[in-house]
Simulated scan of single mutants.
Amino acid sequence: MTVRVNGKVVTPGGVIWQGCVEVRGDRISAVAEYPSVRDGHWIVPGFVDIHSHGGGGHTFTTGDADQARAAAAFHLRHGTTSLLASLVSSPLELMRSATAAFAPLVRDGVLGGIHFEGPYLSAARCGAQNPEFLRDPSADELTELIKIGDGAVRMVTLAPERAGALEAVELLTRHGVVAAVGHTDGTYDQTRAAVAAGATVGTHLFNGMRPVHHRDPGPVVALLGAPNVICELVADGVHLHEGTLTFATSTAGPERCALVTDAMAAAGMPDGEYELGGQAVTVSDGVARLSRDGAIAGSTLTMDAALRRTVAAGVSVPDAVRMASTTPALAVGLGDEVGTLQTGLRADLVVLDDDLEIVRVMRAGAWVE
């Protein structure tokens, strides 16, 4: 049976103002103009979040499969049809057990992969990462985790100035795992060296990084200036000023900027006390901060809200959609399956009203309840 979804269709080539997406089974069978369309809803590809620690009261950071399923289901209702389960800096034992627990979810399509944000990060720029678990990159650890995951490990964030970091980037690249630069006090040259070694993502650009200075440009300028690096942006109004968001977008372009949530379990939940990586987090007015020192501790963001805030900052709807779907999918090697409304790809789409609020979500050809 063919399902036809009508509206203003956002494609890689722009907007089909009177168009439709035809779905057969779990695939997109056609994307075309449809002159009789009278439905003004936006039809956009399902969002792809490559950096999320949880949501809806559930977390990825403990490596619990039931928690992971529930967190993915929460974000699915907000239009995120593909996401990576991001862990925080942890002992190797937890990294092992989480990889083993999440690998079946990746094979089943519940998760798009696993992202290790740490523990190979800078102590000076660790933010809400637990300093107790920070350490230099280990080829033995990474090799073991990649083997356990059997294709499930998609991305690892590390600080390029740590001993062994460049060798780790090269190892990850050889195994088809994305190496990301983040939580770094590294210099411009150290960051450029990581990019030369194979790093292709900047983890939540500006946040957890040495700040820009005109005589010491640091990692931000190195990442923005590297044509093969995709830069994550947390568009929640807390991590980034809207002027910084639009500056990065205009500098690197929407094809190199990926919206991410960096969400924690408190996303979609009331203010209160939560936990992230063994550390107490207080959420007040929707902003998550470490209870001990007030450091930003992830976010309570969802991808639909990130899209709305990006458009409100002045980015066009087609460019913001690229940043929420197409660019992140390409960043982690999922672009041949999801991220665009294109014939043959998985039928993941989001229907939005004129205020860019969720109307309906489809994943793999099925409407989400």
Rank of each mutant, 00 (worst) to 15 (best):
D285C: 08
V106P: 11
S299C: 02
A313S: 14
H183E: 09
G286F: 00
T249I: 14
V332M: 09
G79Q: 08
D319L: 05
M269Q: 15
D348I: 01
T244I: 06
S325W: 05
S138W: 07
E275K: 05
E170G: 05
P254I: 05
R174S: 14
G278Q: 06
D262Q: 07
Y274C: 01
T244P: 06
L301G: 04
V31K: 12
S90F: 05
L301K: 02
G339C: 01
L301C: 01
K147T: 15
I50D: 08
A329D: 00
H41D: 09
T310E: 12
Y34S: 15
R135K: 10
L205T: 13
A364C: 10
T326Y: 02
V220Y: 04
H75F: 08
V5F: 12
F133Y: 15
D185N: 11
L76N: 08
W367L: 08
Q342Y: 04
Q342T: 15
A68G: 04
V332W: 06
V238K: 11
T200N: 08
V238G: 03
V31M: 09
Q129N: 12
V169N: 04
L356F: 07
G19Y: 07
D49H: 05
V23L: 04
G218D: 11
G202Q: 06
T59W: 11
A197D: 09
L345Q: 14
G198V: 05
I43V: 15
D108I: 03
V48W: 13
D348A: 04
T2A: 05
R69P: 14
M209S: 12
G298I: 00
L334G: 06
P45N: 09
H213P: 06
M303E: 06
L92C: 09
A168V: 12
E93N: 09
F60P: 10
A329Q: 02
L345G: 12
C257N: 01
I114F: 01
V321E: 05
L307P: 00
L105E: 13
P131Y: 13
I230P: 12
D236A: 08
V5R: 01
H175E: 15
A199C: 06
I148C: 01
I50E: 09
A128L: 10
G237C: 02
S36M: 11
P137W: 04
G127W: 12
L83V: 01
L111M: 11
P219F: 07
G7W: 08
G339R: 05
E357K: 15
E275P: 00
G127A: 14
A312P: 08
R125Y: 11
V21N: 02
G54D: 11
A152P: 03
S52V: 15
P270M: 05
V153G: 07
R363D: 09
K8V: 10
A329T: 02
V317F: 00
P119T: 08
G113H: 02
A263Q: 10
Y120N: 08
I358L: 02
A258N: 07
A267E: 12
A180L: 06
R24I: 13
I148K: 03
G314D: 13
A288S: 12
P219W: 00
L224Q: 09
S299N: 07
H115Y: 11
A98T: 14
D26Y: 10
T80K: 10
T343L: 04
R308E: 04
H183F: 10
L276A: 04
A248Q: 07
V229N: 10
G268W: 11
D185S: 12
F206N: 06
V21H: 02
F206A: 09
V3P: 01
E242N: 08
